[in-house]
Design a protein around this nucleic acid. Structure first.
Length: 715
DNA sequence: CTAGGGTTAG
């Protein structure tokens, strides 16, 4: 049972009241003096009591009394400052500190470390400089606090200067606290070499010093070195703790090194620190990055009270492993358990919604972004721009973009890409051209996005010009995707020779690149080049059915039916199954999927009635079925029937059946490219029904309105 | 009376 001390203020008030009565006062003092030997000890015990009750008011009373009795000298004065700090008022402590006639190095250290601990690094450094000027030598305690202050403020040169002083005073590596603070500072500045040099000189390395290095390498992308340092530590007989595990597991995940990850997992269990939240979270992340998402889920189940970071790590892991649906389920569960999401969480949830093109879900998360004040956060912002871009709402994307306070390369890329996939080439170019004025340098993704924008809008010259500039800019490394985009741009505009020449420039051409060229050949009926390219492609990927299909389509589109038959038998021999064309719509959060000629939908009869009706009406307006898009050797009537029941037409008919509100935009999705005949059909349909239709195909968005499409019939 | 290291992102 703790002894209950009398409240100090009451004690002192009676002390004051008795002041005129000398006898009483003396008695009172004598009481204390009998157990204490001096005023110093008397005040020390009073101060101790203040700290015990954490009462700043009592500290003030003692201070007043000490001043009155003229008893503020070295050790008691320092104790008073310490009491001020412990009672939670750094400003009061500072005031006392400044008034002290003499200051011990300990109290300098206490003040400095309190400032650092309260994120007031500027003040900490101010005091450090003042102490050096006053001729007080910093000691090992001073340095272990002050390096962190330089680190917090990013003051590299000042930190190096303090390092120099520590060397002069012989304190650099003689104390492992100083050394690890110093190493941490260099690590956070990204100067791994400087940090490593300091660490190497420490004789008695401990777990903190090693962990600092492990964290440094891990966070700066050198996971192999992190693992090497970790092994070194274990070999040296030093046991890892929860801090070490939290970091090294992330490195195992980054290296996709499951076997080491499992070994470390075992070590963590043995050491008993596997229950610490951060190391558990890293374990979860390690399994997710190694692709073992079920193990992540198992780790997650082990948490009694998952926190914000834990939930977020799980959601991030799920999205990474293509489990977007489950990611959103977990996200909703997290919100229901009153865990506040942060911008990491929300951007991941938004990413999940974008991948699934779930615009309503995304909009709800947008509302949460606003609710939690993250509207202007660059991460949440970029995720929102991606969402709206992927869902075909460039206006919303732009409005999010315009509200951002800070625009970085990634948010810029998201916006340019959003314009690109929706066919707003000029807008994309305008942003791209304005980057210089904003001080933003384009990166690989920027270039790919802007080239895609040119490609999707037929801005051939602009695209070529940008490509030429980038070829001479060695800061940007062109990938096969950049080339594929240019090949598509040149090829589709009919500049096939240039496109083929460009393919030949690529050192490691991939299947997609050849396929792009062949598609262009198909568009322009260039059978010879297509055959040339197909041979190259088959050398590269002999079993690739996609190239066979493509070549078959080239023959079909040019009417070479004998070759088509030959190709089809080859395909049969390969047992290749074509990825069937499919369209879908989202009605009340339920996805309805359609294949060509699909009769499986429960409302199939009504859908077909709607379809007949629409087609009859568009024919009156001038729609003529374009049978060139039927790649089978059928007679004209059968070709027309085949076109009539394309999946996108079924999806639109169903969507119309389900929503009579004229203001609602109809959105459909298709896994392959939209066919030319359907494209024309949809344009006419928007005229007939007076509504907007947005179609996302495998490559881009088409915004159909009043008989026109945003792609300008170029896709 | 004073000191050092960790987990989630496009």
């Amino acid at each position: 049972m703790a002894v209950r001390l009398p409240r100090l203020s009451n004690l002192l008030i009676s002390f004051e009241m008795n002041l005129p009565r000398r006898l009483s006062q003396l008695n009172y003092l004598n009481n204390f003096m009998s157990s204490s030997q001096s005023f110093t000890e008397f005040y020390s015990s009073l101060i101790q009591q203040c700290i015990h009750t954490r009462s700043l008011m009592d500290v003030g009373i003692v201070q007043t009394h000490m001043i009155k009795s003229g008893c503020i000298h070295l050790s008691v004065g320092n104790k008073l400052v310490d009491a001020g700090l412990k009672c939670g008022s750094i400003s009061y402590a500072r005031k006392l500190f400044d008034e002290l006639p003499e200051r011990h190095v300990v109290i300098w250290n206490s003040m400095i470390s309190s400032y650092v601990g309260r994120k007031k690094s500027k003040e900490a450094i101010g005091l450090y400089e003042k102490m050096v000027l006053d001729g007080v030598f910093p000691d090992e305690f001073t340095f272990s606090s002050v390096f962190k202050a330089f680190c917090n403020l990013g003051l590299v040169n000042e930190g190096r200067r303090a390092h120099g002083l520590a060397v002069v005073l012989g304190l650099e590596v003689s104390n492992v606290f100083v050394a690890s603070a110093l190493v941490d500072m260099y690590v956070k500045f990204g100067r791994m070499k400087d940090g490593r040099l300091v660490a190497n000189r420490v004789v008695d390395k401990d777990v903190v010093l090693f962990t600092t290095l492990v964290v440094g390498y891990s966070q700066h992308g050198d996971d192999g070195e992190a693992l090497a340092v970790f092994r070194n530590m274990i070999k040296g007989g030093i046991k890892a703790n929860e801090y070490t595990f939290a970091s090294i597991l992330i490195s195992c995940g980054n290296l996709d090194d499951l076997s080491n990850g499992k070994v470390v997992h075992g070590l963590a269990i043995k050491s008993g620190s596997e229950l610490a939240v951060a190391s558990q979270t890293s374990l979860l992340t390690m399994y997710a990055r190694c692709g073992l998402i079920d193990d992540s889920l198992r780790v997650f189940k082990g948490f009694l009270n998952p926190n914000q970071v834990t939930w977020t790590s799980l959601i991030v892991g799920l999205v990474r492993n293509g489990r977007e649906e489950l990611a959103l389920t977990k996200f909703r569960k997290m919100i229901r358990s009153s865990i506040v999401p942060n911008s990491f969480t929300l951007s991941s949830a938004l990413q999940a919604s974008s991948s699934l093109a779930m615009i309503d879900e995304g909009k709800q998360i947008h509302a949460m972004v606003t609710k939690f004040g993250l509207d202007r956060d660059i991460y949440a912002g970029a995720a929102l721009i991606n969402l709206y871009g992927k869902c075909g709402s460039t206006e919303m994307a732009r409005s999010v973009f315009d509200d951002l306070i800070e625009i970085d390369v990634v948010s810029m890329n998201s916006m340019i890409y959003g314009y690109a996939q929706n066919g707003f080439g000029h807008e994309a170019l305008q942003l791209f051209n304005g980057m210089k004025d904003l001080g933003l340098g384009p990166n690989e993704v920027t270039i790919l996005s802007v080239l895609l924008a040119c490609n999707n809008s037929g801005l051939v010259q602009e695209g070529c010009q940008i490509f030429a500039t980038v070829t001479n800019n060695h800061n940007i490394e062109l990938t096969v995707d950049h080339y594929a985009c240019m090949v598509d741009l040149l090829g589709r505009s009919g500049r096939l020779q240039e496109a083929e020449a460009l393919v030949k420039q690529v050192r490691n051409p991939d299947v997609v690149l050849w396929r792009t060229l062949i598609s262009a050949c198909k568009l322009h009926g260039e059978i010879e080049m297509a055959e040339r390219a197909s041979n190259k492609m088959l050398e590269l990927a002999p079993g690739d059915g996609g190239s066979h299909i493509l070549l078959t389509n080239v023959y079909a589109s040019t009417g070479n039916w004998s070759q088509v038959i030959g190709m089809k038998s080859t395909l049969r021999d390969m047992k290749f199954k074509k990825n069937p064309a499919m369209s879908w719509v989202d009605v009340d959060r339920e996805v309805h999927t359609f294949m060509a000629g699909d009769l499986s939908h429960p409302r199939s009869r009504e859908i077909n009635e709607m379809l007949e009706n629409l087609t009859d009406r568009v024919k009156i307006l001038g729609y003529i079925p374009d049978t060139r898009f039927v790649l089978q050797d059928l007679d004209e009537e059968h070709k027309e029937r085949s076109l009539h029941s394309h999946s996108e037409k079924l999806a639109i008919s169903f969507a119309l059946l389900m929503s009579s509100n004229k203001d609602t935009v109809i959105r459909i999705y298709k896994n392959l490219r939209v066919c030319g005949d359907c494209h024309s059909w949809i344009k006419f349909v928007t005229k007939v029904i007076g509504r907007e239709i947005i179609a996302r195909d495998a490559k881009r968005f088409h915004h159909f309105k009043d008989g026109f499409c945003s792609c300008g019939d170029y896709w």
